[in-house]
Every structure is written in C-alpha cells, then in structure tokens.
Design a protein around this nucleic acid. Structure first.
Lengths: 199, 199, 199, 199
DNA sequence: TATGAATGAGCTTTCATTCAT
DNA sequence: TATGAATGAAAGCTCATTCAT
C-alpha cells in the first residue's frame, strides 16, 4: 500500500476541480479574452482563492493552453463518435460538407465554446498573443483539409474552402451578437447551398 | 498679445497631436484590443508622457470612442467622394454590391484599420465592452440596408445580407492572419459571384 | 507487526531524508541567505514536495536552527578527533594558533559550509534575524577563548584575537569570491605570521 | 518660457525625494539585504505609496544600482576633497596606507553605509545577485591598486593587499556587531602596524 | 501644451503554513 | 512518510487617473 500516490477519491476530486476551473475560465475568457480576464475572476466564480486556482493550473498562460487542449480533446471525441470519421487519407466533398454541418450543429448547442474560439481567434491575430501559433496552424490545417476534399469537385477549391471558413466564422459571430435572432444551422445550410454548387 | 484665445498655430499643433495619438492608438488597439492595450504604450509611441496623452484624449474610454468616430468620419468621407452615395431612400442591389466592392477595395489598402475593426467587433460581443452598443447598432443598420437593397431581387434577402457580412469579416480575418497570402479583393469578388445570383 | 513503534528501517530512512534536506539547504542558504531562499527550492532539489520538506523540518525557522546545530555538531566532532582538544581551562597560544590553522585547513575543503557561515554571519548582523543571538554569542565566546590564550604572550591580546578573526573571515570571503584564485591556507599562514609575533 | 521642462522648484523637490528614498533604502538594505527588504518598507518609511516609490526609482533592481552609484559618487567626492588624490599613475605605499586610514576614519562615522556595503558584498557572492559583477570588479580593482602600491616595499605585495582588505572587512563586521564595543580606527591602525612592516 | 508627483486599485506570482488523507 | 488542496499574506509591478505647475 503506497501513501505517496493520491487515493482514487482524491484524484477524482482534483479532476473535478480542474474541470470546474476550465469550464468557468472558458466562459470568462470567451467574454473578455485573454487580456481582459483575471485569475481573480475565475477564482471567485469557483469559490476558490487566487492561490487555489494557481495551485491547479500553474499560471495564466498555462490556463490558456489547457483551455485549448481541452476543447481540442472534446472536439476530437465528438468527431470520433460520429459515423464517418475523417480518415487520414482525406474525405470526399460530400463527407466534408457533412462534417461541417455536424460541426455547426454541435456548435449551435454550445455558444460559450464558440464564443471562446471566436474571441481567441481574433485576439491571436497579434503575433505576441500566446495562442498565435495555435490558431495559425489550426487554420492552415483545416484549410488544407477542405481544399483537398473539394479538389476536382469545384472550380477553385481553395477559394471555396476559404469562403466556407469565412462564412462560418462570420455567421457564428452574428449569432453570438444576436442571441435568439439567428438560426445558425439554417443560415449555414443556406450559405453552403450557394457556395458549394455540387450539393 | 491675447491669452484668452489660443493662437491658430497652437490650435493646429494640438490637432496634429490628436491625429498622431489616434493613429498610433488605432494600430495598438488593433493589435491587442481595448483590454490589452495601455495608454503608456500609446504615449511611448508618440514620444509623450501618459499624462500628456490623457491631456489630449481625456480617458481610456474616450480614446476608444474617438477612435470609432474618427474611423466613421473617414469612411463617410470616402463614401461621399464616390460616384453613387447611398441615398437615404435606399439603393438598388447593383449599387449595394458596388458599394461593398468599393469598401473591400478600400480596406485592402489599410490593414490596420481592418485589424482595429475586427478586434473591436469581436471584443465588443461582450455586453460590458464600451463599444458593445456601437457595433450592435452598426451591424443592424448595415444588415437592414443590405436587406432592403436585395428585397425583390433574391429569394431570401436577409440571409443574403447575413452571408455577405459574414464572408466579408471572415475573409478579412484570413487576410490579416496570412499577410500576403490572400488576395482580399479577388476572393471577395468570387464569393459575391456565388452568394448573389443576380450579378 | 507493530504499528506503534516505527521500524528501525523507517527510522533510518527518515534520518537520511533529514540529512539530505540539511545538506541541500546548507548549499542554498549559503547562496542566498535566510531571506533569499525558499523551501520550494530545497524541496525541488530533494525530489520532494514543499509539504514533504516541512514534514521533516517543521518550519523555515527551525530549518535554520537545525542547520546551525548540525554544523556545530560536525565541528565539534572534527575538533574532538584532533589530538589536542581545547580544554575547558584554556589553551596555550601555540595550541590556539594550531587550532585555527586546523580550522582553516578543514574549511578550505568545504567551501559550502564556509559560504553558509559567511552569509549567515553577515545577515545576522540585523537584530531581527533568527540567527542574530547565535552569532553574537559565538563570536564573543571565540573572542574570549583567543584572548585568554594570548594573554601574557602578546601585547594586546584582545586586539590580536580580533585581528585574527577579522582576517580569517575576510580571507574566506575573498576565497569564495575568486574560486581557485586564492590559496586560503597559505594566505592564512602568512597573515598569522605577521599578526602573532610569537610564532 | 517653456512649459515642458519642469521648473526649478519641481526639480528640487524631486531630487529631495530621490535623496530621501535612497537614504531610507540604504538603511533598510543594510539591515536585511537585497533579498530581505521590500519596497513597501521603503515606501512606508518615506511616507509614500509603493507606486510612489516606484515612480522615482523604477524597479527594485534599479534601486540597488542607484544605491551603489550613489555611494560611489559620495566616496569619490570624499576622496577628491582629500589632500592626496590617488593619481592614475599609482600611489606610494605610504600614500596607500594613508588613504586606507582616511577611508576607515570616514567609515567609522557612517555605520549605515558600512552596513550596506558589508551586506551587499556578502550577498553578492552568489552569482545570481544583481550586484555580483559590481563587487567582483571593485574588489579586483582595489586589490590591484594596493598590490601596485606595495610592490617593491614589502615581500609579498599581493598577500599584504589581501590581508589589509580582509582585516578591514572583518573589523568593520565586528564593529557593526558590537555597537560601541570596538574602536574601529584604533583597531585598524594596530592591525596595519603589524601587517605592513614599513610603517 | 505637457509634465512630474502621487495614488488606489488591480494584476500575476511566490511563499510558508495547515490540514486531511 | 509524504502528498495534494487550500489559504492568507506578501511581493513587484502596471495601470488609469488626478492634480499642481
């Protein structure tokens, strides 16, 4: 019997705390961005001290990293659970369109996650932002994925990919600005119908 | 020698300073947003003291307001100089499309202004942001303007309006993230060709 | 199987830990002093948690006390092992000189111990320092011991005692500042040759 | 008439504040060292806020630098006022001894300055200390100066130089530990009489 | 017009310590 | 024996702002 390893109960409670902190932080960072939020705020919302929060997350920067990793993990799980996993060798145009539709549908149920991404994507346009590299790579990866999927199916596949990403971000922004005023999924489907002639 | 009326030269110099401060601030706020920038930074970039900057702009909030008003004024001047001013009674769909094209073309020459708007539009999604109301109203106004212009010309005019706004913001964001990697005007024209069947 | 009495093995491991902590702490306190070191640092160097270190040493103050006691014990052992233990009734001048020479020779082999003493002796000049009393008494005791030893042998025995202590501390400091640049023992012997005419 | 340059009165008051801060800081740093003192303490002693002190000194590190520069400047002034300025071409042994005597005499009147130097010299043995380089260079320079002065006059000039520096530091330390118990100047003169045979 | 002094509030982070496990 | 959670206190520093000059 080892005393050095924390017991299962302890580990569980610790994981719960971390969960809580990440959830709270996602909401607040989604509202005011990395520069505008403070650990104090997160702490208060968690019923903890600032030092208590730092005990779990280490530093403000690490919190941001944890936030992004956490969202990535959740996204990956969601995709993995779907019927058509996007294989390494690429997807067909139809699959890509379907994937995007599913993504938008999922997003339409979690505005705070969308808000977080929207905020950080914009903030990180600045080269000095801690998430600058993250979004740069991510954007490129997604763009490449879509471009490949549309190659041979539409006239200018990269333009189509750009238009889809652009309109997705833009519609989500409108949807966030007018809560209840926009039907995100319906608008998305209409936009796709026009931007991707194949469908 | 009059002490009560400031000399014309003095007034001129003061206006120049204000100009300089606003230009510098536009750049910095465009990079780090309202929450992330500091007056100290602006002051240093202007060769002034913090107190010196405050003397000209009053407060951090007022600086933001001045920034937005300044940009509006410049935009208005640009539009006024164009051949077809958007009259109060509305515009035709063709005119609207032309207006948007001109706007994008103008923007493609001033990335810092675009950066400023992109940043503030996102930051101001948060209800507590000092520019929250500004962008809410602005978005609605533009949306209404476009909706009216497209009514009778396309099937779902408001959706088209939304799509255009969305894709404009999104393309500008991509253009900002990949300096030199995107031809903003060309991509815009391609997107419009698909989103507005009439053209 | 007994729960009440800790096994010998356990007691041994605990003592080892304490040893390790004291050694590591001696090094770090020697570098940055009582005010400048942190338990975190000691813990990391020991492969332990802060709480783990505190479990063994109780508190930061107690760590300092333990450090000094430990060094005294080691010093006492070293002296006890030498041929001529300084008796309670005093020593001759020759014995005192020999004792000092042995001390310097011993020190020249353990710079970290010297560093610790140098640092704490200086820091503890401040009346609020936890080792203030310790070094006050120690200095007085040594000064008295040397004064007695030199009485009748030199003109101003207390001055000689002061000079010896002063030059010893000063040479050690130079030796610490220029690692490899000073031959501590040789310099000491030369200094003694001048300061104590009898030899 | 320029408004941008602060008036003479303003400049005077600013210099006074700085003076006050440096004096207070010298005392406190002399007591607890660089690691052990806090800006808060200095501020309180000055009747200022922490932010107020930082306005004048910039940062904790800069305060230390200012402290050392200030003391150097004062020392230089004192030396300049003396009859025999140590010329660039070197000094005779007698002049060097006289210089050292004057220095000790001056020091005996300002224990807090001595305390500051003693503390920082010891603390800065650690390579990470902000004054590490400062004292390294200073020690070497003084050592070289004395060595040159004694060359040809005593058998081992560098050893003599070392012994003098060592005993000076050591006596000052004893003098600081026993306020009123040691006659610094008298002890110094006695030590010199033994260490430098020429006199 | 612009500065310097000064402040109050806030920030992130470090630290020593307690407690339950 | 050692850990993890949590805290209160303090640190250095930044910031927006006011005021007198």
């Amino acid at each position: 019997m080892s005393f050095t390893t924390p017991g299962a109960a302890t580990r569980k409670r610790s994981a719960d705390r971390r969960r809580q902190i990440l959830d709270v932080a996602a909401r607040i960072v989604g509202q005011r961005g990395y520069y505008g939020f403070s650990i104090q705020e997160v702490a208060t919302s968690c019923g903890l001290t600032v030092a208590g929060v730092l005990h779990h997350i280490g530093s403000k920067d690490k919190l941001l990293v944890a936030l992004l990793e956490d969202r990535d993990r959740r996204d990956a799980e969601a995709v993995a659970g779907s019927a058509e996993p996007e294989g390494a060798q690429g997807a067909t145009a139809e699959e890509a369109v379907q994937n995007l539709h599913d993504l938008v549908a999922r997003n339409s149920a979690q505005p705070e996650l969308v808000r977080l991404y929207t905020m950080l994507r914009t903030e990180s346009l600045y080269a000095g932002h801690p998430a600058h590299g993250y979004f740069r790579e991510r954007d490129e990866r997604v763009l490449d994925f879509l471009t490949r999927a549309f190659t041979g199916q539409v006239e200018e596949p990269r333009s189509t990919a750009r238009q889809l990403l652009a309109v997705m971000g833009g519609l989500e922004e409108q949807w966030l600005r007018e809560p209840g005023g926009v039907d995100l999924v319906a608008e998305w489907d209409r936009a796709v119908a026009r931007l991707v002639p194949l469908s």
